[in-house]
C-alpha cells in the first residue's frame, strides 16, 4: 500500500469585510489559491475561495455571502494571479469587484457579445 495523505476539508463562512484579513492569513501560512468561484443562490451571490496547503494537501474553503448590490475588494495584493478568477466573476456573473489597481484586464478577458451571460434571465 502506498502512503495516502487525505486530511479533512475545512469550510469557513465569513463576512465580506474580513476577506482581506483572511487572505493575508492564508498567504502567511504559505497556502496557494486553488480556485475562486461565485454562485447565484436565492437572490444572493455566494463566493467560495479555495486555499490548498501543498505539503499536507489540506483544502480550506472560505465562503462569503453578499447581496447583489454590494462590492467586494480584490485579493490581488496577496495573490497576483487571482485577477483571472476575479475577472471571470465580473464578466460572467456581474459581481462588483473593486480595488484591482492597474492589474485589471478592463472587462476584456472574455471576448463575448452578451454581458453577464450566466446570470438567470429574470435577474438581468
Amino acid at each position: 500500500m502506498a502512503e495516502v495523505i487525505h486530511p479533512e476539508d475545512e469550510l469557513r463562512v465569513i463576512d465580506w469585510n474580513l476577506l482581506l484579513e483572511t487572505a493575508m492569513e492564508m498567504k502567511n501560512a504559505g497556502l496557494r489559491l486553488s480556485q475562486a468561484c461565485v454562485s447565484y443562490v436565492a437572490g444572493k451571490y455566494e463566493l467560495v475561495y479555495s486555499f490548498v496547503n501543498d505539503e499536507t494537501y489540506k483544502l480550506t474553503n472560505v465562503k462569503v455571502i453578499m447581496e447583489t448590490t454590494d462590492w467586494i475588494p480584490s485579493i490581488c495584493a496577496f495573490y497576483p494571479y487571482a485577477l483571472f478568477y476575479e475577472n471571470e466573476m465580473k464578466e460572467l456573473y456581474g459581481v462588483d469587484v473593486r480595488m484591482m489597481e492597474g492589474t485589471d484586464l478592463n472587462n476584456k478577458l472574455y471576448r463575448i457579445r452578451e454581458t453577464t451571460p450566466l446570470l438567470p434571465k429574470e435577474k438581468k
Partner: peptide, 14 residues
C-alpha cells in the same frame, strides 16, 4: 493529486 488516495491509488506504488 493522485497522492490524495481517491479510487485505487492507495493500493498502487508510485
Amino acid at each position: 493529486m493522485r497522492k490524495l488516495g481517491y479510487d485505487a491509488y492507495p493500493y498502487i506504488d508510485f
